[in-house]
Design a protein around this nucleic acid. Structure first.
Lengths: 273, 273
DNA sequence: GAGTGGTCTAGACCACTGT
DNA sequence: CAGTGGTCTAGACCACTCC
């Protein structure tokens, strides 16, 4: 009946996008399905290929389809958002530090977030030594040019190729050099997490601050996280402060905006009655 | 010298976008400047208008320019991100409830976030009575169909037309009906904020949970927040739980992704030495 | 009415993927 | 090789804004 009672005033490419959206979300085109090619859609809809491409761009921005050069356009799984519960997570990581090693190795933070076991996960890590630029120097409260240990790492499910998060972590090099294990990327994933490694250096964390932003992905990030360039990423800049007030780690965590949900919980102080 | 030592392999529309980006970020085209028209850019760059439009779409996704139908394309102010410090904010709102009224009216939460005074701000509010749909019923832990008070409100700086946040707040209607003031939208902004209004109903909050997501804006949201449809919004679903464990308010807060930074701070418990 | 961005067409060549 | 999506052209008409 659509369109019978008066013409649709929207541009025709949006009408087409809407039609396809309904088919996808209604289950008529299941996740993984190969969509009709742009040429076919142009013929079946009576539009030019340009207009069909405009419609498909909409679907891509909505995260509903994925175009692959030379192959075709596929319906994406409307992947469930991964809930990342940072409030509990940070305290949980700290509590874990003091457990014995056997207990500690059983599960890591990613498993805590996703409910997956360690066997379902693939790890990747890359270490390098860099000099602090102005921005990172300010974040770490050190002089520009200070040597830093830079760790890039991500974890992904063994059944999906794209990681759920990518982390860029920076620590003052002098700080970690006291424990050579921490300079060895083959030791990843750091058993027990960053907080435990800092513990081996005699460091206890007092506070973690998260700054959350959304922005378009870089081309590299789009590829790595398997999102369309039109889909934003969520980023968390996590700043860890130890009990002496020193910033000991700054980490930028990048996550696909269409599959992530960050959860923070605030317990409020009671009024005195 | 660009391009001298080997050709640029990127598509020409991206090269143009990059050139324009450099001009904008280098200050050569100041915020508010009217860009050359698409036709002019096509002539000066030797590209077709289609390619020029592709370049401009990039700039729009980056949040650098704003296209206005019939008028032209303007360079946008690289607006500073507004930091919204929810951790402090919620406790601060709660502490304020017990202050005397004179003290309380002086500043509200938006001023707390932005550092602006009440004279710099414009308020807008809209109340209605709606029935809970399945999703909101689950969030509020009530039966579907339960009557709710729906408040839509936003605050913007007097010197900019676009709001910094738009809130969609839902409370069980029966709960607030006990204080008729709370049903009157002309009483906005609720002096002292939601927590104070709940206090007049004998309610004390115990916990607030925030769920943060990023997603593309609806056309309405894009217009209201003055962002390009290609720029994501950040959303916070704020769930307020009182000391009896009852959910008393669910609010969806929508913010422009390119101008917002959410800050959460976690104080960690100390190890026993 | 002149100029702007938004939509749309009917072509073309390209890089990339499969067989 | 044929087929796919990515880029690009040279037009056209429209709705809208400003004068």
């Amino acid at each position: 009946m659509a369109g019978v009672h008066g013409r649709d005033w929207r541009p025709r490419y949006l009408q087409l996008a809407e039609e396809l959206r309904v088919k996808i979300m209604g289950g008529e085109m299941a996740p993984g399905t190969l969509m009709p090619s742009e040429t076919e859609l142009a013929e079946s809809s009576g539009l030019s290929r340009t207009s069909v491409r405009n419609a498909i761009r909409q679907l891509r921005e909505w995260g509903l389809v994925r175009a692959e050069q030379g192959r075709g356009t596929y319906v994406r799984a409307p992947r469930q958002r991964v809930r990342r519960r940072n409030t509990e997570r940070y305290q949980w990581e700290k509590d874990r530090v003091l457990l014995d090693e056997g207990e500690r190795l059983k599960t890591g933070a990613t498993e805590h977030d996703t409910g997956l076991t360690v066997d379902d996960l693939k790890f990747h890590a890359e270490y390098s030594r860099v000099d602090a630029d102005a921005e990172m120097a300010a974040a770490l409260q050190v002089e520009p040019g200070t040597p830093l240990l830079r760790r890039v790492y991500w974890t992904s499910s063994r059944h999906e190729n794209a990681p759920l998060t990518v982390s860029y972590s920076y620590l003052p090099y002098d700080l970690v050099a006291a424990n050579p294990d921490l300079l060895d990327e083959s030791k990843e994933p750091w058993p027990g997490g960053t907080q435990h490694q800092l513990y081996t250096l005699g460091i206890e964390l007092d506070r973690i601050d998260d700054e959350i932003r959304a922005r378009p992905p870089s081309p590299d990030e789009a590829e790595l996280l398997d999102i369309d360039p039109g889909v934003s990423v969520l980023t968390v800049r996590k700043t860890s402060v130890d009990t002496t007030g020193r910033v000991v780690e700054v980490a930028d965590v990048v996550m696909p905006g269409d599959r992530t949900e960050l959860v923070y919980s605030h317990k409020l102080q009671r009024w005195k009655t």
